[in-house]
Amino acid sequence: MLIGFDLLDRQILDRDGEPVGKVDDVELALDTDGTPYVAALLTGQQALGDRIGGGLGRWIADIARRLAPDRDRGPIRIPYVLVAELTSAVNLSVRREVLPDPPLETWLRDHLIARIPGATDAT
């Protein structure tokens, strides 16, 4: 597997096919004999901003950090053991509810969308 080609920037889906985010970055670790492996997927605008870099990237990451419940929380981290299958998307073996909530989604839902009548109706 090529990390840059087969993993980075792919869509992450939970076990029901619901979108979780993109693989915005990966966390590498070394095993006992020194070969690197992917320890976790990082997702969310914090990870994305850091990866894009430059002024724009800092700005994106900064907004994400401000919205996060805890400023030092860091990007959302999904341990690689939760990955069930790699297809045209990254499929997880868990439901998205067990993962940390994306801060922007939570904020917009609580402050804007959920306050408008009909927000919970299926169309």
Partner: peptide, 16 residues
């Protein structure tokens, strides 16, 4: 950005 999207989802589930 990889957010939840779609006209078939409840707006609450796709706030962004």
């Amino acid at each position: 950005f990889g957010w939840a999207w779609g006209k078939l989802r409840r707006p609450r589930e796709a706030a962004r």
